[in-house]
Simulated assay, not measured.
Amino acid sequence: MTTFVTSDRESRSGTATCPGAGPAADPGADPLAGLDLPPLPELREASTADARALSRVLFARLAELEEGTHAYSYVRNTLVELNLALVRYAVGRFRLRSESREDVVQVGTVGLIKAINRYDLGEGTEFPTFALPTIVGEIKRHFRDTSWAVRVPRRMQERRLTLAKASARLEQTLGRGPSVTELAEQTGLDEDEVVEGLVAANAYKTSSLDYHAADEEGESFLARRTGAPDPDLEKVENLVSLKPLVEALPERDRKVLDLRFGAEMTQSEIGAELGISQMHVSRLLSSILRRLRDGLTEPA
């Protein structure tokens, strides 16, 4: 993946370039000559406050420069480096699996450059507030365009590629779509493995149930066939999720839950059953329910 950001040394030496930059000017010339700027800090080590203050000054200067000139490229490159922390923050909000963090940072940097190109200092919005949605949107588009719609094991992803290549070759030779047996002979896989790979390939891209043409009543065919949402489904999911959490509780806590929600006893009745006060039962229930709630909402 192409790296758009140059090093600090390159930027401050006047030799940094950005996509779309014009021909380089005299390396000894200062592109920011005439602008009352404090000495540029090490950009990757600049504090948040310094980065914001310096960014405002550089955006004001950028608005005065002609796009495509070396000075314009220099100032924009400096802004990119100065605000790379925004990209790293945005990337940190995603759980990366097979993707390299560096690749995602580069994707986010594309979003940062787009934000710099569109930002208008006169609007009064702080640049981080303006840029973050653009950076996050660029990363989300990358995942949408390169990721599977439904997560499947890597071996199945590789099998889909193998079958897709074999299918393309056979279609050229046969003049029609190949059968499962023909794909098995071509790839050396068992027919069951071919079928499994073809089914898994359906997870690469999904379509909405509303994608197909609707009937006269405005309801799509697939939506009508699948029926209405089951209001009790969420309750079943919660119960299944709760089961291992409840099993992990101490025996007394499970007993308290059983008496309260199974036998539907009052706190006073539970206290009498266990030989403790009603207030103690209340505290126990609050603690137990809080642990179960935290367990349900905790990220996997």
Rank of each mutant, 00 (worst) to 15 (best):
A203P: 03
A203I: 02
Y204E: 13
Y204F: 14
Y204R: 09
Y204L: 13
Y204T: 13
K205A: 08
K205M: 07
K205S: 07
K205D: 07
K205F: 04
K205T: 12
T206W: 01
T206P: 03
T206C: 11
T206G: 05
S207D: 08
S207C: 06
S208Q: 13
S208F: 12
S208G: 09
L209K: 12
L209Y: 10
L209I: 09
L209P: 05
L209C: 12
L209T: 11
L209R: 08
L209W: 08
D210N: 15
D210R: 04
D210T: 14
D210C: 08
Y211G: 01
Y211F: 07
Y211K: 14
Y211D: 01
Y211C: 07
H212P: 02
H212R: 14
H212E: 15
A213M: 07
A213I: 02
A213Q: 05
A213D: 02
A213L: 03
A214F: 01
A214Y: 02
A214H: 02
A214E: 01
A214T: 07
D215K: 00
E216V: 04
E216S: 12
E216I: 00
E216G: 02
E216Y: 02
E217H: 04
E217G: 02
G218Q: 00
G218I: 01
G218K: 03
G218H: 00
G218W: 00
G218C: 01
G218R: 00
E219D: 05
E219S: 08
E219L: 09
E219F: 01
S220T: 13
S220Q: 00
S220Y: 01
S220N: 10
F221A: 01
F221L: 12
F221G: 02
F221V: 11
L222R: 05
L222E: 00
L222C: 06
A223C: 12
A223H: 03
A223T: 09
R224F: 03
R224Q: 14
R224K: 15
R224A: 09
R225C: 11
R225I: 10
R225Y: 07
T226H: 12
T226I: 15
T226C: 05
T226D: 06
T226G: 03
T226R: 12
G227K: 03
G227P: 13
G227R: 04
A228S: 04
A228W: 10
A228M: 05
A228T: 07
P229K: 02
P229A: 10
P229D: 02
D230F: 00
D230A: 04
D230R: 03
D230N: 11
D230H: 04
D230W: 01
P231A: 13
P231M: 07
D232S: 11
D232K: 05
D232R: 10
D232I: 05
D232Q: 11
L233T: 07
L233V: 07
L233H: 09
L233G: 12
E234A: 15
E234L: 12
E234F: 15
E234I: 12
E234D: 10
K235C: 06
K235W: 14
K235V: 15
K235F: 15
K235P: 03
V236L: 09
V236E: 11
V236H: 14
V236S: 14
E237W: 11
E237I: 05
E237V: 10
E237N: 08
N238K: 13
N238W: 08
N238S: 07
N238G: 11
N238L: 13
N238V: 13
N238Y: 07
N238Q: 13
L239V: 15
L239K: 06
L239W: 05
L239A: 10
L239P: 06
L239Y: 05
L239T: 14
